[in-house]
Design a protein around this nucleic acid. Structure first.
Lengths: 141, 141
DNA sequence: TCTCACTTTGGACTAGTTCCAAAGTTGTCT
DNA sequence: AGACAACTTTGGAACTAGTCCAAAGTGAGA
């Protein structure tokens, strides 16, 4: 993840302890954390980091195209650090875990008559279902 | 939309003025309204309807599979009354309008090795871009 | 080392939604 | 038609996720 920091500094990002920690948290695992989860994990490395800073930093990373925001349900947004390789998402309808799946697409483009005059700039595919853990876990309630 | 009420009554739905009005609002247009928009329109037909009831009713319609919840951005959920025919969505990244696009797919199924043990029950494709109005409209600010 | 533009901070604020207990209705049974 | 139980609605409080702000702090170039 330090190449990320590298790239960002080249783009004029001022390097601060907070930003370093957020980048580290995102790079550490390939799961898709919510802002709150990022804040919690960042707080273990830098206890006094504020929620506002985490939101700011995540927003900047998204604006710079280094991280992708994923809104899978109506709840908290999740942040996907794997913005450099195209992929789609597998979302658990029960525990809301998200996994990446590789894209082999080109098959999904919309024909001109089907696009109603929109200029389509991105295609997202979301596969919903139960993850292995939730398939075998007992019913809730 | 009265066949919707029909179906629901058969499933033991108690018929009330409020529910009738919400169903009517959803059936009236094929746009994808937010809960607040549904509340506003329902209020024109039945002024004293409460927000809680609109949320309750929408939630029930979703649970019964008559309406689909669409979370396109991190903001308000939208409700899609077109739950009976498979289709995907075209979302404007600027004004958040949503349009349906017909599905002709089947080409999008995930191979077993790519599904990481998930039991996939639904596939959603979201095409993002600018709608015709926003393509030509002047910049914001 | 100085300096200043860029960053961080915590707390107030907002939007969207959910929850709750009390009051009101619906459909059924007679 | 009348009574009743179960189901619904209601308004407001509460909650979650996120944004905004002015004041205090800090990185890095000169």
């Amino acid at each position: 993840m330090s190449d990320l920091l590298e790239r960002l500094r080249d783009r004029g990002w001022r390097l601060t302890a907070q930003r370093r920690v957020v980048a580290e948290v995102l790079g550490g695992e390939h799961v898709h954390l919510t802002a709150d989860e990022v804040h919690a994990r960042a707080g273990r490395l830098l206890p006094e980091i504020s929620r506002a800073t985490v939101y700011n930093t995540l927003g900047e990373l998204v604006a710079l195209g280094e991280v992708v925001e994923v809104t899978s349900d109506g709840r908290a947004k999740r942040y996907d650090p794997n913005a450099r390789t195209a992929h789609h998402h597998l979302v658990c309808t029960r525990c809301h875990t998200i996994r990446d799946v590789p894209t082999d697409t080109a098959a999904t483009a919309l024909s001109p008559e089907a696009s109603f005059g929109f200029s389509v700039s991105a295609i997202e595919i979301t596969y919903r279902g139960l993850c292995p853990d939730c398939r075998t876990a007992p019913e809730e309630h």
